[in-house]
């Protein structure tokens, strides 16, 4: 409980002092995503306990921690992808823009349109590049060809893939390289014009050059999107994120400005993890 308290003080500074957590300068903004005392169960197994975390708009928040610590579970609960798994349950509250996304009247389909997701393994559909990127808008009911073409081009440009694929829109997405496929998946997620982008180790299967491109891309995207990224690579977290949250054994151990968390962690567990003594 002390941890949570410490964290709350950190993000919600006492009136009078302003801690610029977002790094964007607007500390008065309300958080884009807010989970409070959130728990998560796979059947009877509790995978997350008492997670209270505020995630700011237009910033990159990195979730780090050893394997099996619950960071991916946490990420997937933000767009309710965990609903797909039988017998899962969420306690506490998860709010996006102040609205509880687990409330009864929430439509999961429209939630997932707002909260996009990029998976660890790139999962292009076995269709053409154009059909991949236009899938989201199309299933949302957009049929106008010109409009779709425009969205596809814009999304691919945002994902820094346009120049490589503009002449091969009709070709299968499966023919792209691993790094290109992952950027295609990012473009595909952007095409539904989400507000939040969840990334589950998006670069872990890529070579260093492709990883660098994805990181540059995330740096660009954070101007317009709220990004939450799970990563095993601590250098990556340090390079791209403003805020880092350290998870361990289903708990949120520590959260803070990335620089501070890596140079001067307040918790022993965090220090052990980032110095490589465990995990």
């Amino acid at each position: 409980m002390a941890l949570v308290k410490a964290f709350t003080q950190f993000v919600d500074p006492p009136t009078g002092t302003t801690t610029d957590v977002a790094g964007g300068g607007a500390s008065v903004r309300s958080p884009k995503i807010e989970t409070s005392q959130m728990g998560f169960f796979y059947g009877t197994h509790q995978a997350l306990r008492d997670i209270s975390l505020k995630i700011n708009e237009c910033a990159v928040t990195a979730l780090i921690g050893p394997s099996g610590c619950g960071k991916s579970t946490y990420l997937r609960s933000l767009n309710r992808m965990n609903d797909i798994i039988e017998g899962t349950r969420v306690t506490g509250s998860v709010k996006v823009d102040g609205e509880d996304i687990y409330a009864k009247d929430v439509d999961v389909v429209s939630l997932r349109k707002r909260v996009g997701m990029v998976f660890q393994k790139s999962t292009p559909f076995p269709k053409s590049i154009f059909d991949n990127v236009s899938f989201g808008p199309r299933i949302a009911g957009l049929t106008n060809r010109a409009q779709l073409t425009e969205i596809v081009e814009k999304s691919l440009q945002q994902a820094a893939l346009w120049n490589e694929v503009k002449d091969r829109m009709r070709e299968s997405a499966m023919a792209l390289s691993g790094g290109q496929q992952q950027r295609l998946c990012i473009a595909r997620a952007l095409a539904t014009s989400p507000e939040i982008l969840l990334m589950d180790e998006p670069a872990s299967a890529l070579d260093p050059a492709s990883t660098a491109r994805i990181e540059d891309l995330i740096f660009e995207l954070k101007q317009n999107y709220t990004i939450v990224i799970v990563t095993h690579n601590m250098q990556q977290a340090a390079r791209i994120s403003e805020i880092t949250a350290f998870f361990c054994q289903g708990r949120l151990v520590e959260v803070g400005q990335t620089k501070q968390l890596f140079t001067n962690p307040t918790q022993k567990e965090t220090e052990d993890y980032i110095t490589g003594r465990f995990g």
Binding site: G116, K121, T123, F135, A189
Partner: peptide
């Protein structure tokens, strides 16, 4: 059909039927 295909589609806001 790999589960990842279904997940990718659902994550883009597709309904189950879509």
């Amino acid at each position: 059909v790999p589960a990842s295909l279904r997940h990718a589609s659902l994550a883009l806001g597709a309904t189950k039927w879509q």
